[in-house]
Design a protein around this nucleic acid. Sequence first.
DNA 1: CTGAAAGCGCTTACAG
DNA 2: CTGAAAGCGCTTACAG
Lengths: 365, 365
Amino acid sequence: MDNSDPGNGQPTIYDVARAAGVSIASVSRVLNGRRNPLPDTRERVERAVAELGFIPDGAARALSARLKEVVGVVIRRPTVTMADGGIFADEEESLQFPDLINRGIEVAAQHRDFSLLVCSVDVDDHDYSRRIFALARKSDGLILHDQVLDPDQLARLSRQVPIVTLAGVQSPSTTNVGGDNVTGMRELVRHLVRDHGFRTLAYLGGHATSPDNIARHATFGAEVTASGAAFTDGPQWQGNYCAAGGARVIERLLAEEAVLPEAIACANDQTALGVVHALTQHGLDVPGDIAVTGFDDIPVARHLRPLLTTVRQPIQQLGATAFQALYAMVRDGEAAGRNVMLPTTLIRRESCGCTPGPAVRPTAG
Amino acid sequence: MDNSDPGNGQPTIYDVARAAGVSIASVSRVLNGRRNPLPDTRERVERAVAELGFIPDGAARALSARLKEVVGVVIRRPTVTMADGGIFADEEESLQFPDLINRGIEVAAQHRDFSLLVCSVDVDDHDYSRRIFALARKSDGLILHDQVLDPDQLARLSRQVPIVTLAGVQSPSTTNVGGDNVTGMRELVRHLVRDHGFRTLAYLGGHATSPDNIARHATFGAEVTASGAAFTDGPQWQGNYCAAGGARVIERLLAEEAVLPEAIACANDQTALGVVHALTQHGLDVPGDIAVTGFDDIPVARHLRPLLTTVRQPIQQLGATAFQALYAMVRDGEAAGRNVMLPTTLIRRESCGCTPGPAVRPTAG
DNA sequence: CTGAAAGCGCTTACAG
DNA sequence: CTGAAAGCGCTTACAG
């Protein structure tokens, strides 16, 4: 029963206790600031800690305190199934929106001494759900981007740890945080149809199962139709939230000499990036020949030419809010089942055909 | 001593053992595939596991097996100190290069059932090193981007866990993985000076302490000078690896009506993005009036106009290599002190003044 | 305020 | 092959 320096290196709490001449309980107390120890005790412990370079082991702490101080985050890695049944992976692309959200989660988590454990999944992989369940046992709670598990699995998972979905769907056992797709899309359609007078419009989608994508698609279609303009729709307008995916859609349409609409609303900015690029490569001018819009307002959207008209979401805030919701569940046992919707706003820049004004800096979200 | 269902939810290995009518040791063995158990034992355990939805607790496993199956990653969040002493944070920007590297680390880690624990630090924060040391005790090893700790701290940290630096500097106690800055920069200068004939060139830097930045700066300056061209240098050319940082440098130079060089080599692509944008906003044409190049070849660089001439690094591969190096240290006790250098290649596109050819897809790295 | 002891949920020699 | 038991390094009632 000699718990001291086992030769492998790291000092344990026993080493500190011996060096300070106190019990391990006292060491633990000064380290965690519980039950204020006497100044003398505190000092001796602090000196010993500093001398030995002691840092408590995370696993032991977690096991004992029943708190890992880790939030697990799952993002979806893109894979796109092609028309011919093949698979095309755009893995090399950075996923700016999810990565930025994760930064928001992480910064919020730091304030609570939580760390971020990330796991990216390819939903076409055979056992990706096993990895998510394993992640759950390494974390105090999980934040799931998009829709990576079906409702049944989500319900099962929520029995392991609290779950917050980001841009997913709220359920009795999970809380959801997302942007207001409907309002954003309405504003966009109104601008495109009423202000610019476009008569034919298409929506270039993201992952087919993504709740964000579904909501944006539905709202866009309904609003366009309601406004009396023509909604160009169909399976060929299916992208995957990536620039390469968006570009591919355009390439194919152009290859089969399809008649393009006057305006294309993309599922997100990254898609719009690829769309603008593909159109330009083929000699089409944006917005001269065709208008293109995005969604999210990722920072690079502010450096593109033409400047991208898009629907702004408070990206980092989405992440921070998701963490806070999760933390309340983990820490205070707050109930699941909430649905938090953050506001979106239309940002009119150039790619819709608006005239470039003086450089517009969006106000901080 | 009743270790069974404590009411809080998750079944433990004791519950499984009881349900299967075996000992917890047997449960552990079939779960971990050790010492092949009898088919009968295996089946009963597997049935009980499935019925109870048992997943081993990560902390308990880690404590007992002395392996957390977690790799900690530290990236540097941008903050830039302004000339007037103020602080300007570009926190809202996505850090595409580090994020993409992290994806590479994570995918490699998945193959070994490791997860990625990320921590972003602001080196101007007062106690960021405390957070890094805490991260170390939640991980089996650490990968540090850039230069986030000084050599002394690195040495101390390496006594806690194995360390791999990414684009850092190799030392006896740490292994480093990075791209070949010198060769890449040489090729770039040769192209700019010899092929394009530029006579005045500047380097717009990244973080001043970044080893990548230092190497690129030094090589660029030396090569330009050696070639007989003029190297424009000075503190006003200090960026921070972000688009906003690059744009700010240009804004200031323009504001003080400085004479711009014929070509600007940026520390990375993201900076180049901001530079191109700022120049364009001021009516300057890239590459007509001034050439701009990047470094990294991040995917968006392929969707910009003009297409960015840059030095390609095998980004995801850098991450995967860093993980593999770390894994060898964690698992096989491999010694630190290696330095792995991955090749870079010049990618000539349009922003240097080359004529746009047919769209060039770089071959997979 | 402080210490001795139990316990967190696993893995792994050690016997059998 | 399998089980009883020790032990991983902490935290936290429980006494004193």
